[in-house]
Design a protein around this nucleic acid. Structure first.
Length: 545
DNA sequence: AGCCTATGTACCC
DNA sequence: TGGGTACCCTAGGC
């Protein structure tokens, strides 16, 4: 050691760098990495000099990719733009050979979408469909009424991420929300100061909720605590219909969680499904389980969604982690009696019948594809269309679910949040997409420079032009600008008006929302939010910005 | 500001 | 089949 320390002549220093690294050398992150690399290289060369004497020290300034650890390129955010690692398949369509930036599905959202095929009435079932059910569907698709600008009200009372939303069936301005902690929020967004949170109904994730079809003051909820609750919205008094963990916590292997839930009014049952593949029927009058649990998905797999057909009470749709959505006949509900198995390449986050005719199926899968089956009366072996859309699974996000517009009689409009971000004026934003499920076209995208979080939970109002969103802990109500009347919101103390103040753009600060330090955090703001329409070429839009 | 962590699916061996 | 771990475009909290 000693001879090297004492030497007077320092060896020559060679700098090894990528050809384009000089162009971006002002970047702070890069300087940090350079420093790190320099240290590493110096140590190695120092050991070398011990053997060889005054051999040159090589300082490497080569870029190291954070994703694949290889040199020569970098991945990650450069400002608000994410640079893909070329060694990874495309983050959007999951295919190798190109990056997300150059993905054909990003250039044209409807890329690869097969148009709706012509329906031939060859068999009796199809004849019945054409005669009895098709008339319910409006033959000519009405033009979507998409506003140029929407206003947005924000509320923050959940302490954990929002997991589900439900509009009140009769009261037009009541929104219900559930969160990861199991809390149930009630927000009257016409009177911003009217909000309620019931925190003791469930002890963990509130996965699904539905209003009672016979009493719109009652809400049913299924939770990962293994219970189904029925809560009176006025009093907050809750009863437990079912508890799958009566003996409490006996370890992770035996703890049962409830995910999918729906209500079948005709049969008077609440349907719930667990994380082991089983379906349970609970009589909504006696609040007791009827019959035995039925395995409807692969043993040990989570059943995340249940939906009763709005017009054929005997038809049930389920979906889950076994990569399938399944169609069932309620009259013959038993393992093996499935009517159809709708295969997906990954976990199916949601599967819904269409809201007017009940004959279409829309699913959201973790393979970044929306799938549409145009008619449950036709061959269900493969979907009518697949639409590539960025809604990746992330363990920290509520799973994305594409939701039908319940007001669109042509059953062609769906809303779903977008995972992948775009660079909007230097801010990475994750818009909420409106997609024409017949063509795959992006009809509109809603975003706000103040909302930088991903918005996986979205619900369209059953009667009004209103979109409710859940993004992280926050809830949003979006509506066309002209309909938004800030004056009607009397509680001005808690209203923050955002008027496009540039200082407020970009990453929002804690103060934007938290003006109270107690558990009663509550803020509402009205502001201008952009709605883009229609967008065919996403790259064009990017180029303009 | 920087770290820690909860958390779920996929895929490896 | 089960344990280990990658993912590495999260968000809240300390």
């Amino acid at each position: 050691m000693a001879p090297q320390v004492r030497r007077t002549a320092f060896p020559k220093v060679l700098i090894e760098r990528d050809t384009d690294s000089e162009q971006s050398s002002s970047d702070d992150d890069e300087e940090e990495e350079e420093q790190e690399n320099e240290n590493e290289e110096k140590t190695e060369e120092f050991n070398d000099t011990k053997k060889k004497g005054k051999s040159p020290i090589t300082i490497s300034l080569k870029k190291v990719c954070k994703v694949c650890k290889k040199t020569g390129h970098e991945a990650g955010f450069k400002g608000a733009t994410y640079i893909d690692c070329p060694m990874k398949p495309c983050f959007l369509c999951k295919m190798p050979g190109h990056t997300t930036m150059t993905c054909p599905h990003r250039v044209a959202t409807e890329h690869g979408v097969v148009p709706a095929p012509h329906v031939n009435t060859q068999n009796p079932v199809e004849f019945v469909f054409e005669r009895q059910l098709k008339p319910r569907i409006t033959p000519i698709k009405p033009a979507y009424v998409i506003p140029d600008q929407v206003d947005c009200a924000v509320i923050r009372y959940h302490s954990r991420r929002v997991t589900c939303l439900e509009f009140h069936p009769t009261n037009n301005h009541i929104l219900l929300s559930g969160d990861k902690k199991g809390q149930l929020g009630i927000w009257d967004f016409a009177k911003v100061h009217e909000k309620t949170v019931y925190g003791n109904i469930h002890s963990c994730i509130l996965n699904n909720m539905r209003f009672s079809p016979s009493n719109d003051g009652m809400i049913y909820a299924a939770s990962s605590d293994g219970t189904v609750s029925c809560t009176d919205l006025e009093t907050g008094i809750s009863s437990t219909l079912m508890n799958l963990n009566p003996d409490g916590w006996q370890g992770p292997g035996s703890w049962r969680m409830l995910y999918g839930m729906d209500i079948n009014l005709e049969r008077g049952v609440v349907l719930v499904a667990d994380n082991f593949g089983f379906l349970y029927l609970v009589d909504s009058r006696s609040n007791s389980q009827t019959g035995k649990a039925i395995m409807i998905h692969k043993k040990g797999s989570k059943v995340v969604g249940l939906h009763c057909n709005p017009f054929q009470p005997d038809l049930l749709l389920s979906c889950g982690n076994d990569h399938f959505a399944r169609l069932w006949d309620m009259r013959r509900l038993e393992a093996g009696s499935v009517l159809a198995n709708l295969e997906h390449r990954r976990v199916v986050n949601s599967a819904y019948f269409s809201p007017f005719s009940g004959t279409k199926i829309l699913t959201t899968s973790q393979d970044n594809r929306l799938r549409i089956w145009d008619s449950i009366f036709r061959d269900l072996d493969s979907p009518s269309r697949e639409i590539v859309h960025s809604h990746d699974f992330n363990r920290h996000l509520t799973p994305f679910r594409a939701e039908w517009d319940p007001k669109d009689p042509s059953e062609s409009l769906a809303v779903i949040g977008r995972y992948i971000s775009e660079n909007y004026n230097g801010t990475a934003l994750h818009p909420i997409d409106f997609i024409d499920i017949n063509t795959g076209q992006l009809v509109a995208e809603v975003m706000d420079p103040n909302i930088t979080t991903i918005t996986p939970v979205n619900k369209l109002h059953p009667r009004d032009d209103i979109l409710a969103s859940g993004s992280s802990r926050s809830l949003f109500i979006w509506r066309p600008k002209e309909k938004f009347d800030v004056a009607e919101q009397s509680d001005t103390r808690k209203i923050i008006i955002f008027g496009g103040d540039e200082k407020k753009r970009g990453k929002r600060s804690k103060d934007d929302y938290d003006d109270d330090s107690d558990d009663d955090k509550f803020n509402v703001k009205g502001k201008n939010v952009k709605v883009k329409k229609p967008v065919k070429q996403m790259t064009h839009r990017k180029a303009k910005r």
